[in-house]
Design a protein around this nucleic acid. Structure first.
Length: 274
DNA sequence: AGGCAGGCTTTTA
DNA sequence: TAAAAGCCTGCC
């Protein structure tokens, strides 16, 4: 199908944004996008048009939601005022096209536990290994094979040896215990939905290997809490560099997380590490 | 109680 | 060799 939109959507920027780790750019500039048991191949044609290898029905029921198309990001960007916060205005303008995906919560949780103290290529590497060892095998519309991200049962079910092949280092035990807690029901991902942001952060941090930063990433990228504001080494640098008087959270509520993402991508893009 | 140093696996630059 | 989308433990 052909999708025609007016709002922000830059596939390359999303793929490089550090919120998802399994998108793949294909030879023709299209992107392969996996989500649960489905995959999408999407290509920008220009003029706000995109070609998608799915039906309109599947787009409406799956991909529009995944890509968060019901949210107006142009409106959100308009919160950045060029006079009062020129840095943010510049960051949001330069990174226009980023959207906060509605990813699978379990995948997001595991992915951001893996992310700690590592750079993006290493994160992608471990996640791909996990999918190959614990995920289901699928075939996309081109006839190419791909592995899905394992659900909790699948991840919990693989042997220690196989999980150790995924090069998780000291995070091995974090992943093992988190998957087991989700499978046993000791940790219920659905229960998070009824909690407010602070309660949610607290509950997530009860998991071994989940601190404030990973919990914040889970809120923003796994639960789509748009006001969640993960502070990592990059954001720390930005806050020290650009906001020595403190970050104006009130100006950007309830979308602080979106602006965190713009800043992160913009600042990191100035001196790329991968 | 709350803050801080040191250690942790492995990869990347 | 240091740093990497950090967290845990032990110590004070």
């Amino acid at each position: 199908m052909i999708l025609k939109i007016k709002d922000d959507l830059d596939l390359k920027k999303i793929a490089d944004s550090g919120q998802c780790f399994r998108w793949k750019e294909l030879d023709d500039g299209a992107f392969f996008v996996p989500y649960l048991d489905k995959s999408l191949i999407i290509k920008e044609l220009g003029g706000g048009e995109f070609e998608l290898d799915c039906s309109e029905e599947e787009y409406e029921h799956v991909w529009a939601n995944y890509l968060d198309m019901q949210t107006n990001y142009r409106k959100i960007r308009a919160l950045a005022d060029v006079k009062s916060d020129p840095f943010m205005y510049e960051a949001a303008s330069a990174q226009r096209g980023i959207r906060i995906l509605r990813q699978d919560p379990f995948e997001a949780l595991i992915s951001f536990i893996i992310s700690q103290n590592r750079n993006i290529p290493a994160i992608k590497n471990s996640i791909e290994l996990i999918c190959e060892r614990a995920g289901k095998l699928y075939i996309d519309s081109r006839g190419e094979h791909w592995y899905g991200f394992p659900n909790a049962e699948e991840l919990n079910g693989i042997s220690d040896d196989k999980l150790k092949e995924c090069r998780l280092g000291y995070r091995f035990e974090y992943i093992r215990r988190t998957a087991a807690a989700v499978v046993s029901g000791e940790f219920d991902l659905k229960e998070l939905e009824v909690l407010d942001d602070d309660e949610c952060l607290e509950k997530l941090q009860s998991l071994h290997g989940v601190g404030l930063k990973v919990a914040s990433c889970m809120l923003l990228y796994g639960l789509h809490r748009m006001d969640a504001f993960p502070v990592d080494v990059w954001i720390k640098r930005i806050l020290a560099d650009k906001y020595p008087q403190g970050f104006p959270f009130e100006e950007y509520r309830p979308y602080c997380g979106v602006f965190q993402q713009y800043m992160f991508a913009y600042y990191r893009g100035e001196k790329p590490v991968n």
